[in-house]
Amino acid sequence: MIDPIFLLEAAVNGILLSGVLALLALGLNLIFGVVDIVWIAYVDLVMVCMYLVYFLVMIYGWPLWLAGLASVALGALLGLGVHLLIITPILGSAPVNQLLATGGLLFFLQSFATFLWTTDHRTVRLALPILEVGGMFLSFVRLIAFAISLLAMIGLWVFLRRTYIGTAIRAVSQDREAMALMGADPQRVYLVTSAVGGAMAGVAGALLIIQYSVHPFFGAAFGPLTFMICVLGGLGNMVGAFVASVVMSEIISIGGVVISTEMGYVIAFVVFIVMMFVRPGGLLVRRG
C-alpha cells in the first residue's frame, strides 16, 4: 500500500504541473479556435524557447527574468513566422495538408535541434529550496512556475476580454466571415493571434526549463498531452482549459506514483478518448 502522503504529494505536484499545461493548451486553443488549424509542432516551439533560456542563462549569464522575457519575444516571433511562412500558403488546403505542414515543422525543429545542440539533456538549475509541508516535499521552483502561469493566464484573459483586438479575436473564433464584414482583415487577426499564441509558448518555455531538462524530443513528450487538454477544455473556454489541465495532470501525476509513469499517461489518454465521445464540446460543455 502506498503511503497516503505520497499520494497527496503527487496530487499537489499534479496541480503544480497543470498550470503550465493549461497555459500551453490555451495558447494552442487560441490558434486552433481562430485559425482553425492545429499546430502539431506547437510544443516544439516551446522546446526552442527552452533552449534560448538555457543558453542565455547558463552560457551568457543573463538573469533569469530577462531570459524569460526574451523567451516570450522569441515565442511571439516564432508564432508570426509559422503563420506567415507555413500557415498562410495552406489556409485553403485540405485539413490533412494543414496537419502535415505543421507536422513537417515538427520533424524540422526536432532534427535541427538535434543537429545544433545534440541530444544532450540540459537544465537550468536554480538554487531554490525544497519546501517541506506536513511531510510533503514541494519544489519552490514549481510553486513559482505555477504562480507565473496563473498570472499569464489572467493576462491572457484580460487581453481577450478587455482589449479591442482581443474581443475581435474572440469574435473571429465565433464567426470568421461575419468579422470580415465588420472590416477586420482576417490575416491581421490571424497574425496577432499567432503572435499571442507563440508568446504563450515562450512563457511556458521559460517556466518549463527551470523544472525539466530540455532535449530535441521534448515536444514529442508533451505535445500529445497538450493537444488533448486543448480539445478537452473546449474551444475558447479558459476555465475549461484549466479544469481539463488539472484533471489530466492529476491522472498522470497520481497514476505515475501508483502504477507507472507510462500507465499514468495511458489512463489520461484513454480518458481523453472516452471524453471525446461523451463530451465532444469540452469537459464543461454539455452535448448540444
Partner: peptide, 16 residues
C-alpha cells in the same frame, strides 16, 4: 540531424 532537418523542410515545401 542534418538529413532529417532537410527532410522536414522538404516535406513542408512539398505540402505547400
Amino acid at each position: 540531424g542534418m538529413a532529417e532537418t532537410i527532410y522536414g523542410l522538404l516535406l513542408i515545401l512539398f505540402i505547400i
